[in-house]
Design a protein around this nucleic acid. Sequence first.
DNA 1: GACCAGGTCCTTG
DNA 2: CAAGGACATGGT
Length: 211
Amino acid sequence: MDSENPPKIILNSIIISLERIYGSAGWWPGDADQVMIGAILTQQTRWSNVEKALLNLESAGIKTLEDIMKADKEMIMDAVRCTGYYRVKTERLIELSMFVDNKGGIDALRKIPVGELRRDLLQVKGVGAETADSILCYGLNMPSYVIDSYTERITGCAGISAKKEKLKALFEDVLPLSVERYQDCHGWFVEYAKDFCIKKRCDECIVMNLD
DNA sequence: GACCAGGTCCTTG
DNA sequence: CAAGGACATGGT
């Protein structure tokens, strides 16, 4: 499409179009604990399944990472079964909980510089780039842009052939340094992908029809 | 019944 | 490094 234009120009056009369609909306609900738990559970799974699992956990009295550590493992597995990969996800929840506990709790995390905390999070088994950035951006309100496969698909479709790591840098370059902005923008890409890239076809795609 | 979902880790070439 | 498999349930 606009493949002769620089990536920054293309990305700006997409973002402007998406904002016009979706406006802003609190896209990932919940406090820091709920976001962190959800960030693990949503791996390779629909959000509706995660919502069920979060309710299951709550019914079992598990609402925080601290609760995860104290809970019976079988109890956690039962609650998160509906998100798939429930054995590995249970282990990942426990790993993350222990990490946060070792750091002194969530309030202590907020005092760590975002780049440093991101590196530390990536050391946790089961926490990859997207999960780490989701935790930072939506859970702790720190400016770390989240790239997922939808974003890679949409930008690729628009002629930006960068992989996830490069895309993160590109988005953070183009967007103003604002957590709210990062949160909204990532949400737009996911909503857009769900609305147009899957059910509908590419000829209806704004990305392919930028003016 | 096939195919995909708001990934990540581990093993191979 | 890139590619391929494993992890697993639920919805269309």
